[in-house]
Amino acid sequence: MRHLLNPMRWIFGDHRPTRQVALISTLLTVVCLIWIYPFLWMISTSLKSNAEIFANPGLIPRGFAIENYQRAWTEAHMGSYFVNTLLVTVGSVIIVTLCTSTLGYVLGRFKFPGRNVIFFGFVATVFIPQGFTIIPVFELLTWLGLSSNLYGLTLATSGHAMVIFVILFAGYFSQLPKELEEAARVDGVSFLQTFWYVMLPLARPMVVTVVIMQVLHSWNDFLLPLVVTLANPAIRTLSVGLYAFKGEQFIDWTGMAAAATISVIPVVVLFILLQRYFINGLSGAVKG
């Protein structure tokens, strides 16, 4: 009976399923080819020689110009930008997960003086665009002496996206049964231990969601790293590095394509390997 119950019926009525499936598969294949064409083009260009760009508009390169990658990695510093991006991403994931899970736990499960002020304070700021606060954030980092190093960038990257995570954690924790803490308290486990050993493991799906969303946020972020790295090109991230690359004195199309591929491949591989977690994690954002 199961095949009768799928939502495609809404559209196609009672045709024979195989025909529908074939039709839709073909359609989706075309859509997917269009969808990933930019990636195919990027990879193809990164393997072409500089003389080939105009002479050979097709997707299949004539050879494998690996030297494009060598240039991008060493001379365009994509290697060090890669490390910077990785450090910022790992650092901000740790900070964000710790700060927002604790905050979300207390806000989501307990009533205490000041709770509503804090909670609704966060909720009210969800919609404020990044551009709005970038100037004071930069000033604050300058004041702290962190305006042009990786610590400052990591800290600000963590702070910028945290609001939504706090709300997600609060929502998730509030749905867990009350008895859990009761049991822990009877067993003589302290408050902090209860959180760390009982509650946080239970919130694993939400932790995964937050980790993945923060990885995406940090790897994709542009305005903040652009501003923070203005005074110190050595700490640029991949996005900013490639942007600066574009604005330089000469244009190296194939080198740029190689640099773009370098900055795209890691997240794509990570995504394909951990696909299940990505999908489930992101689904958590609307379900939770």
Binding site: R71, E75, A76, H77, F245, E248, F250, I251, D252, G255
Partner: peptide
Amino acid sequence: TRGLSRRSFVMG
């Protein structure tokens, strides 16, 4: 050098 350009690319 941190010039991310063709210029530095073709330095060699």
